[in-house]
Structure formats: structure tokens, C-alpha cells
Design a protein around this nucleic acid. Sequence first.
DNA 1: GGGGCCATGTAATCGGTTACATGATTGA
DNA 2: TCAATCATGTAACCGATTACATGGCCCC
Lengths: 170, 170
Amino acid sequence: MSLRHALLGLLAERPASGYDLMKRFDTSLANVWPATQSQLYTELGKLTREGLIAVAAKGPRGRKEYDITAEGRAELRRWLVETRPHREVRSEALLRVFFLGQIPGDEARAYLEYLAGTAGGQYDALVELEGAIPWDDDDLSLYGRMALEYGKRFSEMRRDWADWASRQLR
Amino acid sequence: MSLRHALLGLLAERPASGYDLMKRFDTSLANVWPATQSQLYTELGKLTREGLIAVAAKGPRGRKEYDITAEGRAELRRWLVETRPHREVRSEALLRVFFLGQIPGDEARAYLEYLAGTAGGQYDALVELEGAIPWDDDDLSLYGRMALEYGKRFSEMRRDWADWASRQLR
DNA sequence: GGGGCCATGTAATCGGTTACATGATTGA
DNA sequence: TCAATCATGTAACCGATTACATGGCCCC
């Protein structure tokens, strides 16, 4: 149940509407915790009923600006300090590797080369993103840079691994 | 919907009962695509009704030994050759990093050190596993080694990243 | 006036988890 | 005989995805 904590985390920085939050999920958080629009509005409703967030202001077109409550902040800190992330294991890409013996070697190699290509593309995109962001010295930049560095190392590792693996088939 | 393809992949190697398959999910596949017992039996029922697998033999205690059908093999190959894995993004561990500004620096550092510790432990466990497996020259060993190498590189990368990140906070 | 964006919600479905429920066989 | 293991299934619930549905506001 991390979606609620992602919402609390974003609202802890500044108040926002569902629409605002959606955009942030589609951009900065898209690479860590994607969420759909319907899921988001449903969760905002639940959080409001539970008193972790509240409607702070109303705007045009039925816009509701949410803000985090004291209980919401407490829950966010509790999550960060007292709980530990679940191991995330599922990898469809890797599951396929287990069964590559079912297809001819050249098709298996094509698959691994495809993986190398997508990982390489992701790495390039992150390097470009890094250059485009106006980094400064606040916490958001500090931890945002850490997350970006993780993404870079991860895509680099997958690219190198897939290159290595496809070479094993030659 | 990869569980069905995981089952097809395992049954393509050799016939097995639900109980047999469960053990293989709990050991070799646990790190790539975990599945629960109930999910597994439900999916075996569906696959049988759809004609992708069939009960080949019955044993004591109501044991049903399943085997893959020609249609099942075709579906497995179609999945491997014609479809591409979905990008897998969700990372609760990384989501937390985005919000570490909400807690004091020393608690944030403790979190990153915790991540380094678990990743390091995983790396060690995989190295040990690698030494314990009697590798030979068949496809299963070839692709199994690839998957293991991925796991090693992945945990290594996470350990090094978390070490680097925690050092950023000093 | 109208296109694009802002803005909110509901319903159906699906894959996955947890809990429940039962019983046969084997070997010490 | 009795514990461990083999063996199968169902039900309730939850989070996530897809599709549906509606309408107001702003600027050109």
C-alpha cells in the first residue's frame, strides 16, 4: 500500500489537486511508482475520509486542493522510519531468460540484444534528463539526484549484462 | 499474465504436478516470479480448460501430473518470440528515497545503510548458491547461469549505490 | 465559437495475497 | 501410531488497470 504514502509524500511538500498530483506521477514519479488517474482519485477520497489529508481550498471546475494533515504527516514519518520496503522481485524480462532454451539460439540472442538496446536507450535518456534539470542544494535535489543515479546505474547494469549474455550465445 | 507462461515453460521441460511446480516456484523461480499455491492451482485449472496443458497421469493422494499440449507449446513460443516484456518499474525502496527529506539526516542515512546491507547479503547468498549448483553444459545451465549473473550484478549495483548514497549524507 | 486543457469521478475486471479447508500416504 | 510430507482446492479481499462518463474554463 505505497500509493497512499506517495501521495502523502507529495502533499507534504506542498498542497495540490488530484490533477496536479497526476502530472507529478506521470513525470518525476513515473519511473518509481506509476499510478493511474482513477486509482489516484479513489485513494484521495480514502485518505480524506481517514483524515490523513483534507480539502484546503476549492477552485474553478470543481478543483479541490488537498493538504496533508498532522495525522498524515505522522503516518508518512511512521512509514519512512518504522517500516521497511518489501523485496521487489518480479521480472518478466528475466523470467523469459529461463525459458530461452525453448526457441532457437539466434532468436534467443535477438531477445537479449533487444534488452541491451532498451536498457541502453533508458540510460541515454536519464543522462539527458540529468543535464536538463536545474539542480540546486535543497533536499529535493539531493534525494532526486540519488534516485536518478540509481536509475542510471540500473540501466547501465542491465545493458552490460544483456551485452554479456548475448555474447555468451555466440 | 506471465504466471501461465511460467507454468508452460516449466511443463515444457518435463511433466509435473501442481505440488512439484510449487516447489520449483519456491526455489529456482522465487527470485524472478514468485507465486502462491492457490494462484498456481487456479491457473492450472484454467490452462487445462483452455487446452494448453492436460492431465497426463494420476497418482496417489489425488495427484495429477500435467503435461504441456501442442497448443501450449505454440503459445509459449508465441510469448517468447512475438511479445516483449513490460517495463517493470515499481520500486518501494526508491519511492522512499524521494521522501527522505521528511526525516532527519541520520535516519535517512540509516535507511540507506540498511539497503546496502540487504543488497550485500543478497549478493553473498547468490555467490554461495552459484558455488553449490552442479553446472553442466545444457540449456538450463546456460540460461540459469545468465539469470544468476543478472542477480549478482543487480544486488552488487544496489549495494554500491546505497553505499555511495549514504556517503552523500555525511 | 470552439479546441485544448483542466478537472473529477465510477464500474468492471484482473492478477495476486491471505486465510480457510480437507485429506491421503509414507516412513520412523 | 503419529508426525511429516504430499496433495488439492475454495473464498474473501485488495491493489491496479482499463474503460466509461461528464463537464467547466480559458484563450485564440
